[in-house]
Simulated scan of single mutants.
Amino acid sequence: MKVNSVQGALLAALACVLVGASFTANSLLGAYPYAGGQALRYGIACLLLVPLAGRGAAATLRSLTRRQWGRLAALAAIGMVGFNLAILAAERTAEPAVPGVFVGCAPVVVAVLIPLTARRRPARPAVIGALLVAAGACAVQGWGRTDAAGIVWSVGALLGEVGFAVIAVPVLRPLGPRLLSATVCGIAAVEALIAGLVLDGAAVLRTPTGQETAALLWQAVVVTVIGFVCWYMGMQRIGAERATLFSGLIPVSAALTAPLVGTGTYGAAQAAGSLLVGAGVACGSGVLGKRRPTAAPAREDVPATR
């Protein structure tokens, strides 16, 4: 792999590890209004990201078309607010492992969907790697009790995870990772607040406890500001297909950090699943592929999407 691809892989991996750790933070926010908490999280993140957006950010935003603004609104609604609310709704009637298993299938969907929309055949290594990652994610999380509603909302969470990568592809180049992250966080904060007013009314926000404040700041600063920028920088370098492979690290990271707050254990099944995820990432990202001659640049190192 070229240096640019290695950097992209490391950035995508770091982003997904941070997101997985956020699941542990979520367990500390069970009593806080969910949509209101997401509005706070994204609002704080937006304020922190705006200074990092770079000079000319306002002019860039003014140059966006209505279609691009619509895509940004859809990215925030589907890939961020919708994803989070779908997870919450699924866990009302299903054990947390159920939506986790569905979300773990996102690499398979992206590995097939992105090439089809670009009118090309899915790459066999990417599909095989995605299947291994999905199997590993399922092994890490296991399965649990659910009903029809839990499955429907889990499918919604899967669509949200896929949308977070796929919908962003056309607007990543004109905005760049930092401005894209700042913009969608601002939009998501407004959308989450509106959803909270509909769902919770006047109780959408309240003063968080010290523990809740720490969890919200972790989600805003570490998971959102650092995680989102790293994710889109990684996707910019290696493409959505390969970047999404690293989402298999989300349940691995969650399983590793859960014992720290007493909300889970890490045993043989989690270890075996982690190895499968690692093998899938290595296979699909090209790490296990043969090195090509330097005179002929490897096409697999060119981002799969623009």
Rank of each mutant, 00 (worst) to 15 (best):
M1N: 07
V3G: 02
N4Y: 01
A12D: 04
F23L: 13
F23P: 00
A25Q: 05
N26S: 15
S27L: 11
G30Q: 14
P33W: 05
P33V: 05
A35R: 00
Q38C: 11
L40F: 10
L40Q: 01
R41W: 03
I44A: 13
A45W: 08
L48S: 06
G54C: 11
A57V: 12
A58M: 11
T60V: 08
Q68H: 10
A77W: 01
M80L: 15
G82K: 00
G82L: 03
F83K: 00
I87Y: 02
A89K: 13
A90R: 06
T93S: 15
A97Y: 05
A97K: 04
V98K: 02
P99A: 04
P99Q: 08
V101Y: 05
V103H: 01
C105D: 00
P107C: 12
V108A: 10
V108L: 13
V108H: 03
V110S: 09
A118T: 06
A118M: 14
A118L: 15
R119K: 15
R120H: 10
P122S: 11
A123H: 14
R124W: 13
A126V: 13
G129S: 10
A134M: 10
A135K: 03
A135Q: 05
A135P: 07
G136I: 04
A137H: 03
C138E: 08
A139W: 06
V140F: 07
W143K: 00
T146A: 04
G150K: 02
I151L: 15
V152P: 02
W153F: 15
V155T: 12
V155D: 03
G160K: 04
G160T: 08
G160F: 05
G163D: 09
G163F: 03
A165R: 00
V171R: 02
R173A: 15
L180P: 02
L180G: 02
S181W: 06
I194F: 13
L197F: 13
L199S: 14
A203I: 06
A203G: 11
P208N: 09
G210K: 03
G210M: 11
T213Q: 10
T213K: 02
A215Q: 05
L216K: 01
V221S: 07
V222P: 09
V223R: 01
F228C: 11
Y232R: 07
M233Y: 12
G234E: 04
M235L: 14
G239T: 05
E241S: 13
E241N: 11
R242Y: 02
A243L: 04
T244Y: 00
F246V: 03
L249D: 05
S253P: 04
A254L: 05
L256D: 07
T257P: 08
T263A: 12
T265R: 14
Q270G: 15
G280C: 08
V281R: 00
C283K: 04
S285M: 06
K290M: 09
R291M: 13
R292N: 01
T294F: 07
T294R: 14
P297L: 12
R299Q: 14
R299I: 09
R299C: 00
E300C: 06
V302S: 13
A304S: 15
T305N: 14
